[in-house]
Every structure is written in C-alpha cells, then in structure tokens.
Amino acid sequence: MTNVWIALVIGNSRLHWAEFSSDRLQKTWDTPHVNQDQVQLLHELWIASVVPSQNQFWQAYDRAHFLSLEQVPLQGMYPTLGIDRALAVWGAIQTVGDPVLVIDAGTALTLTGSNGDRLIGGAILPGLKLQFQSLNQGTAALPLFSLPLSASSLPHRWALTTETAIASGILHTVIAGLHSFIHDWRQIYPTSAVVFTGGDGNLLHHYFQDLYPNLASSVKVNPHLAFNGIRAIRKNNELFISN
C-alpha cells in the first residue's frame, strides 16, 4: 500500500501543503487559513506552525503530528527561533549540504545560516508585500502598489511616478541589503550554498539576475525547503521507532 502523508506549514498569511508518497514529493499547494468546519483529511499529517491560533483546528485530528523546535537536529538554536526557519535550514542541509544560507522570502524576509549542524544566525525584516502595505497604511497619500508576480526586471532606480518610486525604493534597497548579507556570509564561508525559498523567492532571484548576474548564477531557488526538513525529521522518527 502506498504510504501517502501530508506536510503542512502554517505560515503567517497562508497554509502551505505538500503531499508525499513515502519519501517522494508529489505536489504542493497553498490555501488560506482555515476554520474548524474546513478540516477534512484522510492521511497522516505532519504540522509545523508559526501561528498558534491556527493550531486548535488540528488538535482533534488523531493522525496529526505537531513538530516542535526540539525535533529539529540543529545545534545552537534559541527558544524563539521560528520553526519554519529551522525546518528550511534543515531541509537545505539535506538538499544542498552545508554550510548554507537560506533566504526565505515570505510574509517576513528572513536570512538564516548554518555550518555543519550548527545554527550560525541570521536576520529578519518585513517581506516585500508587507513593505508595500506599510507605506499605504502608514501614510495619507501613498497608494497600495502590488508588485506584478511576473515582473522580470527591476524598476528604474530614479523613478518619475509615485508607484515606481515606491517599487524602486523597496526593491533596490532589499536587493542591495541581501547582496551585502550574501557577500559577508561568503567572506566567512566561501564555499557556502545560498538558497532562496518562500513565495517571493523566484522573484528576488530574477532581480538578482538583473543586478548581479555572476552572483545569481551561484544562488539556487528551492520553494520546498521546509517540506524537505519535515520529510527528513519524519524519516528519522520512523527509523528511531523501528529500532
């Protein structure tokens, strides 16, 4: 019988799902946050959550396994480290090896580095959408500008409209900041892999190709790092139980 199971990462804005058959990833999809009436599952479910208020909807599901930070075999983690960041790094180690720097471009934009099985540290700033939203919500005159998901090139740095000035300010600053972090990281770990993940990971990588093509060629994109981390922990758990 096929061993089908589901991984669920409860993010700040959405639910991120993955279906596995044994260790093979079959498909991924995203949905809005749910209420109790929407919870209908048939498979084993492995959950990592950064939104405690969503956890209650899955507590009664008898095939659910809630992952905690203590189950991620990284050394040097601090108590408030997000489980999503820890899983993405652990998934990156399984995928591309170490040392590794993971840049997760979700609701929050996070950088997390590890060497061997030890967390080195990282940084957190608002994600792209949050930065656009904050200008609209915190000012009287600036519009809400939505960045086209298909955008393939950066806006001109010296903009002549309010919308493109917002895009220029946010995007050029974010890209320059990420470039600085990557440069600093590789000064310490010259052979390190760098991986973009998260909903805006592909978009940021496209922008890097515009400004820093040589650097972009050595940076990977993998939207499934957290799921890879869950898979590795689940597999290790099965081996532990079987022994």
Rank of each mutant, 00 (worst) to 15 (best):
A176E: 11
A64K: 07
T80C: 02
T173D: 14
F66L: 10
D117K: 10
S21F: 03
Q187F: 05
N237T: 13
I166M: 15
I230T: 11
K129A: 14
P73S: 04
L215S: 11
A176H: 12
N55Q: 11
V194D: 03
S146F: 03
Q38Y: 10
L215Y: 12
F20D: 01
L15G: 06
Q131S: 15
F208P: 01
S153I: 03
K129E: 14
T31C: 13
A232T: 00
V219Q: 07
Q40G: 02
V39C: 11
L142N: 04
L25S: 10
T112P: 05
L142V: 03
L225T: 05
H172R: 04
L128S: 08
P79R: 06
T161H: 12
I6W: 06
R14M: 10
A48Y: 00
H172T: 04
Q71D: 14
V195K: 09
L42D: 12
W29R: 13
D117N: 12
L119I: 06
W58C: 02
G177D: 09
L111F: 14
Y78H: 12
A48V: 05
F208E: 01
H65T: 15
P155C: 08
L25D: 00
Y78P: 00
G91W: 00
G198A: 08
L8Y: 02
Q187M: 12
S49G: 06
N228H: 15
V174Q: 15
I175L: 14
H16E: 15
V102N: 03
H16C: 11
A232L: 04
F66H: 12
V34T: 15
H206Q: 15
L42Q: 14
M77P: 00
T80N: 11
D200K: 01
S22V: 03
H205M: 08
K235T: 12
V39E: 12
P126A: 13
H183Q: 10
R118N: 03
A167N: 01
W17Q: 02
G169D: 13
L69Q: 04
I93H: 09
I241E: 08
Q38V: 03
D184E: 11
T164Q: 15
V96G: 00
R231M: 14
L45W: 05
I93M: 14
Y212I: 04
I188T: 12
A232Y: 07
Q56A: 12
L15D: 05
D200W: 11
L154H: 10
N202R: 13
H65E: 06
F20C: 05
H205S: 07
A108I: 01
A216S: 15
A123N: 11
N202P: 00
D117Q: 15
A92L: 02
D184H: 13
F196C: 04
T197L: 05
V219M: 13
A140Y: 00
R186P: 01
H16Y: 14
F181K: 06
V219A: 06
Q131Y: 04
D30S: 14
S168D: 08
G177R: 12
A64W: 05
S146W: 08
N136D: 02
G106Y: 06
A105V: 11
P148A: 09
T110G: 08
W29L: 08
F132H: 14
P99Q: 04
A60C: 06
V100R: 00
E70C: 05
G76P: 01
